[in-house]
Simulated scan of single mutants.
Amino acid sequence: MYTTINQDGQLNNYAIETPVYYAEYPNSEQQRRYAFQGACAILFVNVLLLTALAVS
């Protein structure tokens, strides 16, 4: 942690900055997994909505 002191004696703490890196484009396996997770999420939300409509 980087600390400075101003003229009034107040401390200013600064967090350590992590290095910046670029994200890599997902390969075909990851893309398939993301599509499957999205489909499961849509199915789950639809089941919740239909259950709420059926109960009300």
Results as ranks from 00 to 15, higher is better:
residue 48 L to T: 02
residue 17 E to R: 06
residue 14 Y to K: 07
residue 43 L to W: 04
residue 7 Q to V: 09
residue 48 L to E: 03
residue 23 A to D: 12
residue 9 G to F: 04
residue 37 Q to M: 13
residue 13 N to T: 10
residue 12 N to C: 08
residue 48 L to R: 00
residue 38 G to D: 14
residue 28 S to T: 12
residue 50 L to S: 00
residue 34 Y to D: 15
residue 38 G to I: 06
residue 32 R to Y: 11
residue 54 A to G: 15
residue 36 F to I: 13
residue 30 Q to R: 15
residue 2 Y to G: 00
residue 5 I to R: 12
residue 9 G to H: 01
residue 45 V to N: 00
residue 7 Q to D: 12
residue 11 L to E: 13
residue 48 L to M: 09
residue 38 G to L: 11
residue 22 Y to L: 10
residue 8 D to W: 04
residue 42 I to H: 04
residue 36 F to L: 14
residue 53 L to I: 05
residue 35 A to M: 06
residue 48 L to K: 02
residue 31 Q to A: 08
residue 26 P to M: 04
residue 13 N to R: 13
residue 31 Q to S: 08
residue 38 G to V: 05
residue 38 G to A: 13
residue 9 G to I: 03
residue 43 L to G: 06
residue 19 P to D: 09
residue 37 Q to V: 11
residue 15 A to E: 07
residue 14 Y to L: 08
residue 16 I to F: 05
residue 15 A to W: 02
residue 45 V to Q: 00
residue 35 A to F: 03
residue 15 A to D: 06
residue 36 F to E: 14
residue 29 E to F: 14
residue 9 G to D: 00
residue 55 V to Y: 04
residue 39 A to D: 10
residue 31 Q to D: 05
residue 4 T to C: 03
residue 26 P to D: 04
residue 52 A to N: 02
residue 13 N to D: 08
residue 12 N to F: 13
residue 55 V to A: 04
residue 32 R to D: 14
residue 11 L to Y: 11
residue 27 N to Q: 05
residue 51 T to A: 08
residue 6 N to P: 02
residue 51 T to G: 03
residue 12 N to K: 14
residue 19 P to G: 05
residue 25 Y to K: 11
residue 15 A to I: 01
residue 20 V to R: 10
residue 9 G to C: 01
residue 39 A to T: 11
residue 16 I to T: 09
residue 10 Q to V: 10
residue 24 E to W: 07
residue 26 P to T: 04
residue 55 V to W: 04
residue 27 N to D: 15
residue 7 Q to S: 13
residue 46 N to Y: 02
residue 40 C to R: 14
residue 45 V to A: 07
residue 1 M to S: 12
residue 51 T to F: 06
residue 13 N to E: 12
residue 21 Y to I: 10
residue 10 Q to I: 08
residue 50 L to D: 00
residue 37 Q to N: 14
residue 42 I to T: 12
residue 43 L to Y: 06
residue 55 V to T: 04
residue 49 L to E: 00
residue 43 L to D: 02
residue 49 L to P: 00
